[in-house]
Nucleic acid binder design. Structure first.
Lengths: 136, 136
DNA sequence: AATAAAAACAGTAACAATTCCTAATTTCGG
DNA sequence: CCGAAATTAGGAATTGTTACTGTTTTTATT
């Protein structure tokens, strides 16, 4: 027996926002965003729906060493690149990770979190550029 | 010019506690523990020193999808197994991860976080045992 | 459609984890 | 030893999140 949860306007609006970007927004950012189209929505509703959506697997919650949790529209197992310079969070697909984990564990791994600290594309270019300037 | 930070009694006591176990304690657990030998230490001091120690690389901060941050005496890059049943956190050394990340990134990766959700050794045995009993 | 039960809501208070603030103490450099 | 700098205790404040209460919306039943 499949239970289809009723999708409220609030729920739909929140999900739309998350699915419309690959920004990995925080709950607060999502709250600010959803208020643009639904000014009377409450913080509690945002958190409740983010939790429900995460629990049912429609979105994915990401927790990082610093700052609040973020939400990801991509629910497939994948990692994240956290930029050491600008703090941005972007998807990072590291192919063999899951199978390596399985080998190490000796059993299947259904979910993992992989957060890599490094420079994002943009900041890496910037850093290289600066380094060149210093050399001149 | 190397700057050696003064090690206060508080700092030393906190570090000792972390280094004495592989329990991945939370700040609050560390606070409770350090108060046994230093009853007047304040929460703020514990947090300030945990941050300082993490920043200088003497210990490592672990953040998980749920619950407060934890602290690890092992600063070498490695992952963690978070038990889905009992919630315990144990070290997990997945050898090739770093090199795979390097390949994917195209540049060296100096730090990563890998948290795997699965059953810990103990709970896995327990689960198997229960399953056997059900079969009887 | 009328209506009762269930679910979700807004608004806000409460909570837990962490940080910040101030005055007092401790350590350092000379 | 003395003044500057760093660290502390204690507690207030902040942040991110959850819980509560009374109201609205949806669903199920007729």
């Amino acid at each position: 027996m499949i239970y289809i949860r009723y999708l409220t306007k609030q729920n739909r609006a929140i999900l739309d926002i998350i699915e419309s970007t690959c920004d990995h927004m925080t709950a607060e950012e999502i709250y600010r965003e959803v208020r643009k189209v639904m000014p009377r929505i409450s913080v509690g509703t945002v958190y409740r729906n983010l939790n429900a959506l995460s629990d049912e697997g429609s979105i994915r919650r990401i927790s990082l060493p610093c700052g609040p949790d973020r939400y990801d529209r991509n629910v497939m197992p994948h990692g994240h690149l956290v930029c050491e310079m600008c703090g941005s969070v972007s998807d990072l697909f590291v192919e063999q990770v899951q199978s390596i984990i399985r080998e190490t564990l000796g059993t299947e791994c259904f979910s993992y979190e992989l957060n890599v600290s490094a420079l994002c594309e943009k900041c890496r270019r910037l850093a290289t550029h600066d380094a060149e300037r210093v050399l001149l």
